[in-house]
């Protein structure tokens, strides 16, 4: 993961979508108008967050299997980075909602689900701080992480689809897949998603390496 090329690629991809996101043609739709461009910035945040949380769960499972301390550190740093992207996703979503729906936080299943998912991962971080002993901390938080993940998936992706929701993609509303996104938007959107996921993984790996170095320094002194 220390190779340079994919980091350069990530920056180029995100840079391209930043430009194309503002300049490329978009379909003119009622209410949405130009705000449809937010799909380039808002949706990739959540994709990145989910990818990071998925990485975290995978490494938590790995940790429970072999007890390697580094797996635990990676799991935490993935959550730490994921929370950052979650915050960005909430902010970009609220900016958009303020214009299209008239208020930043309407009472909506998708939004409440995302808020609760955020609470869940904040609880994970609190749990880590509540425990003193290193190994105990790693094991118990790994257990909670794995316990919480499938419930978060149900909450963010299954519940809103079943109930009435304002949010695109749930409650019978059209998603970015069919109606409101034409073929001009698709390439930009997918590039943005891939670029941001790579940036997320890069951030996470940086944090992970920093943490490892810190640990090494602390154990030596």
């Amino acid at each position: 993961m220390r190779k340079k090329w994919w980091k350069v690629l990530a920056v180029v991809l995100v840079g391209l979508t930043l430009i194309a996101g503002f300049l490329a043609p978009v379909p003119e739709l009622p209410i949405l108008n130009e705000t449809i461009r937010n799909v380039y910035y808002h949706v990739p945040m959540w994709f990145t967050m989910i990818s990071l949380y998925l990485i975290s769960v995978i490494y938590s499972i790995k940790y429970l299997k072999n007890g390697n301390h580094k797996d635990d550190i990676l799991a935490v740093e993935a959550v730490n980075t994921g929370v950052l992207f979650c915050a960005l996703g909430l902010v970009t979503g609220m900016l958009w909602a303020n214009i299209t729906w008239g208020e930043p936080w309407p009472n909506d299943p998708k939004l409440n689900g995302s808020a609760i998912a955020t609470l869940m991962y904040l609880a994970y971080l609190v749990l880590r701080n509540a425990l003193e002993e290193e190994q105990k901390k790693a094991k118990i938080s790994a257990v909670y992480n794995i316990f919480a993940f499938p419930i978060m998936i149900v909450m963010l992706y299954i519940l809103p689809k079943m109930t009435d929701s304002l949010h695109p993609g749930s409650g019978g509303n059209s998603t970015f897949g069919d109606l409101d996104m034409d073929n001009n938007m698709r390439p930009v959107f997918y590039t943005a998603v891939i670029g941001w996921i790579m940036i997320g993984i890069w951030l996470c790996s940086l944090r992970y390496r920093l943490r490892i170095l810190n640990d090494r320094k602390n154990s030596m002194s």
Binding site: P109, L119, L127, I140, Y144, A148
Partner: peptide, 28 residues
Amino acid sequence: VAGISAKADGNNTLMAILSFPIIIPLLM
């Protein structure tokens, strides 16, 4: 969740923090 929080010396606040995000969707 009680099993998890019991390992953290039975912290009652922890129990609430850990279980509420999981139980709220069920409750809804």
